[in-house]
């Protein structure tokens, strides 16, 4: 009797929560979600993706270009540091997203290469590139300033952004001395809900 009760309860819980999950997917996105953007992107595996495909995970996002010799290496190392400070249990619910502002150079192959070289090829690392228009739109969503100043060089602002699993901006930090611990704490805060 006892066992039956227990079993029933667990079964019911599972069913009801499953229902719940199903409905969540259909639920309307918040109006200020980045998943509202319909642009098409390619990841480091050459697969075509939409931002919506990142839904459901907490996102740590930075825009860089891989051939950058000055600011971007700092930003990339910040991203690595942030990633390393999130527990292996929690990292499953996080995507570390690097978006290229130089889609011409940063082809999927290039990005893949960069990911492997920098030891950023675990599943939580997502590299994205698109066309100029989508890149510009995404930059403007992040209030990111950038300018091509020579064929291989960009001026740009240095911003790391955190989005919740619904794609809403939670915080941004700007500058090369970005506070890694503050970002990690915020990510943990979002993960705990």
């Amino acid at each position: 009797m006892k066992t039956l009760h227990y079993f029933l309860a667990v079964a019911f819980l599972m069913i009801s929560c499953q229902q719940n999950n199903n409905s969540k997917v259909k639920k309307d996105l918040p109006s200020n979600s980045i998943f509202q953007l319909s642009s098409e992107w390619q990841n480091q595996d050459g697969k075509t993706v939409h931002l919506k495909d990142l839904q459901g995970k907490t996102l740590v996002v930075v825009m860089i270009y891989t051939t950058c010799k000055t600011a971007c290496p700092v930003l990339v190392s910040k991203m690595q540091l942030i990633e390393s400070k999130i527990s292996r249990q929690d990292i499953k619910d996080v995507s570390m997203v690097l978006v290229s502002i130089d889609p011409e150079t940063d082809t999927p192959e290039f990005l893949k290469d960069f990911a492997i070289k920098n030891n950023m090829d675990a599943p939580q690392w997502v590299f994205l590139r698109s066309n100029e228009a989508a890149t510009q739109e995404f930059a403007n969503v992040l209030s990111m300033k950038y300018k091509k100043i020579s064929p291989m060089d960009f001026s740009h602002s240095n911003i790391i952004s955190i989005f919740n699993p619904q794609g809403q901006l939670i915080m941004q930090d700007e500058g090369l001395e970005i506070d890694v611990d503050k970002i990690v704490n915020t990510v943990h805060g979002v993960l705990k809900g």
């Binding site: 000055t70 971007c72 209030s143 300033k145 300018k147 001026s155 740009h156 240095n158 090369l176």
Partner: peptide, 17 residues
């Protein structure tokens, strides 16, 4: 303008902060 966000007053990657 289309590229209004190309005007940087800080965090320039070449000149640093």
């Amino acid at each position: 303008t289309d590229d209004f966000n190309s005007v940087l007053i800080k965090s320039d990657s070449r000149v640093g902060e």
